[in-house]
Structures are given as structure tokens and as C-alpha cells.
Design a protein around this nucleic acid. Sequence first.
DNA 1: TATTGTTATACTCTATAACTATA
DNA 2: TATAGTTATAGAGTATAACAATA
Lengths: 141, 141
Amino acid sequence: MANTALSSPAAEAWALVQRLVGPQRKRFMALAAEYDLSPPQLGALKALDPARPVAMSELAGILGCDNSTVTGIVDRLEYRGLVERRPADHDRRVKLLALTEEGQELREALGERLHAPPHELASLSLEDQRALRDILRRAFE
Amino acid sequence: MANTALSSPAAEAWALVQRLVGPQRKRFMALAAEYDLSPPQLGALKALDPARPVAMSELAGILGCDNSTVTGIVDRLEYRGLVERRPADHDRRVKLLALTEEGQELREALGERLHAPPHELASLSLEDQRALRDILRRAFE
DNA sequence: TATTGTTATACTCTATAACTATA
DNA sequence: TATAGTTATAGAGTATAACAATA
């Protein structure tokens, strides 16, 4: 955990990425609190797709928790009028989750806040920003 | 949340960073489960300093939760013999947290796992790795 | 008076196991 | 038989408020 050598440039880069992202956790929690959401509720709102309904089990997969946990999270979101459960045509066991209009608006506002890059990146030179973007693009090729 | 323009290179870079780090959350949960720790317990172990005892309130600050929450987390860690509560000389209200020998060993093993860069970074060319590292270093200047 | 840590309380998240209804 | 979602249950995390010891 300490400064253990950092053998490769990738390892040091990874440590720096973690340092960049670390504060994001508190930012996420603060944002959830601001909108009176629990962190998993915010995660669920973020994970739902405005363009396509998502099955309960699919959401469980995205959030990395059990189906039974999703039931409670969605219960509260639905009670608040942010999400709707709808039957699925192709399989009557499945329930599809759709954002209500209010849910979509909230999700939009949340998204804007989460998308804003932290000042460490925003204050890099435009040249560095582009280089960083290009390297990260290559990382996913 | 969708592909909303990504106005600046910094915004796209930030989106890519989040994409890189996203899977890290599940990695973290899986690692905790593997060692029979809850995620906050793993976080606490990670936050404790092998070289310097940490006060309860300091740990609460790092974890971003209330002091009263830390009490329970540390209770379980202490019950398991991973952490010790010690009195502080300078202020008898304060309790200092120190890793036991077993706690240090576990933290070391955990650290090795968390420090390994994901394959997306590890498989970048050495040139890209170095450039990425250098840009991120500048981000923190 | 203010602060550190604990306790009491209430709520949320969490997984497991058992259940219902589909498939 | 197997799967999607719910319910019941028990344990852990979470903050708030009240408290004891200390500053």
C-alpha cells in the first residue's frame, strides 16, 4: 500500500489514476445525499437507460448485487415516482424498469454533475488533455 | 449519461478514466469477499497506516462516514484480531488504531492485488505508459 | 463549552433460502 | 427442471441524537 517500488510506468500510472478517482467516491456520496438518494439508488438511476427498459436481473448484474437486493432499491425508487416496473411481453416472469419523466429529469441533472471532469484534468494544457484522451482511447482498442 | 457531446478532450478523457475504473468496484468487492471482509472493512484496512497509528476520527474522515459508523467497523476488525485500539498519550479521549501483525500481513496481500494495473493499461506500449504517467504527474502539480 | 468515541435507534443494503409464477 | 422476481430473515453499514470522559 505504501510506495512499493512502482515497478512499471503502467503501475505508477494506475496509482495516479486511483489518486485521481479516489475523491470521486465522496463526490458521489455527496451528490446522492444532496438529492436524498442512497448511493445504491444513485447507482441504479445512473445504470438505467432512458432509451431502453432494463430487466431487474440486468440491473442486479450492473450493480453487482443479488436480485433480492434490487427489489428493495427499486421499491424505494418506484415509491418516489422515479422508476416504473412494467411487464415484459416476451417473458411474463420478467419485469422491465423504465424511468418516469421525473426520473429522467433527475438522471439528466445527476449525469451533468458526474460528467464534469475534476480540476486536475480540466486544468491540464489542451495538448496534454488530447494526448491523455488518445492514450486512453488506445487502451480500449 | 448517454454520449452527451463530450465537449472538451478533458471530458472525454474523464469518461475514459471512469470506464477504466468502473470494473474496479467489482474487483474490490470480490477481493473483500475472498477474504471474508465487507467492503468498508477492506477500505479501513487499506486506509490504516502500518507506519503510524490512526485515530478513529481520522479514519472516519478517510472513509467519509460518521465516527459512530467507524465504531462498528473497527469492532469487527478488532474482534478478528486484525486491528488494535490503543490509548493516545497526548489526549485521553482519542483512540489510536494500529494493525496487528496479522493485520499487516493481510493488508500487504490485499495491497498487491489492488496495485496491479488493469490489462488495459498493462498492455499499452511502454511509450504510451510513460506518456500517460507523465501527463498524470503533471495533473497533480 | 467543545470534542472523541460509544451507545441507542431507525433505516438501508446485503446475501441466503424458500416461495410463486412462469418458462 | 430451471429461471425471474419477491419475501423472510439475519447481519452489516449508515446517520442522528444522546451520553460519558476528557479537553
